[in-house]
Amino acid sequence: MFWIVLSLTLDQITKHLATLYLRFGEIKNLFGFFHFTYATNRGIAFGLFPGVKEAVIYLTLLIIVITSLVPLLFKVSKLTEMFIGFIVGGALGNLVDRIRYGYVVDFLTFDYWPTIINVADIFIFIGSIGIMIQMLIAESKAKKQIEK
Results as ranks from 00 to 15, higher is better:
Leu20Ser: 14
Lys148Asn: 15
Leu108Gly: 00
Asp97Met: 01
Pro114Gly: 14
Tyr101Met: 04
Phe2Arg: 08
Ala45Phe: 01
Leu79Lys: 13
Ala120Leu: 03
Thr67Arg: 08
Leu95Arg: 00
Asp106Gln: 03
Ala18Leu: 01
Tyr21Ala: 09
Gln12His: 05
Val52Lys: 12
Lys53Met: 09
Ala55Arg: 13
Gly130Phe: 04
Ile84Lys: 06
Ser7Trp: 00
Ile66Thr: 08
Ile57Tyr: 06
Val119Tyr: 04
Asp121Gly: 07
Val76His: 01
Val105Cys: 05
Ala91Cys: 05
Ser128Asp: 00
Lys15Phe: 09
Ile124Asp: 00
Lys75Arg: 14
Thr109Asn: 11
Thr19Ile: 13
Asp11Ser: 05
Gln145Met: 15
Leu79Ser: 12
Ser128Ala: 10
Glu54Tyr: 12
Asp111Ala: 09
Phe125Gly: 05
Ala18Thr: 05
Gln134Ser: 14
Ile27Arg: 14
Gly85Glu: 04
Leu6Arg: 01
Phe107Ala: 01
Pro71Cys: 07
Tyr38Glu: 09
Leu10Pro: 02
Ile4Asn: 03
Phe34Arg: 05
Glu139Phe: 13
Ser128Cys: 07
Arg23Met: 13
Leu73Pro: 06
Val5Lys: 00
Leu10Lys: 03
Asp97Pro: 00
Thr19Ser: 14
Lys148Gly: 11
Leu10Asp: 01
Phe49Ala: 09
Asn94Asp: 02
Arg42Pro: 11
Phe31Lys: 14
Phe110Thr: 02
Tyr38Ser: 06
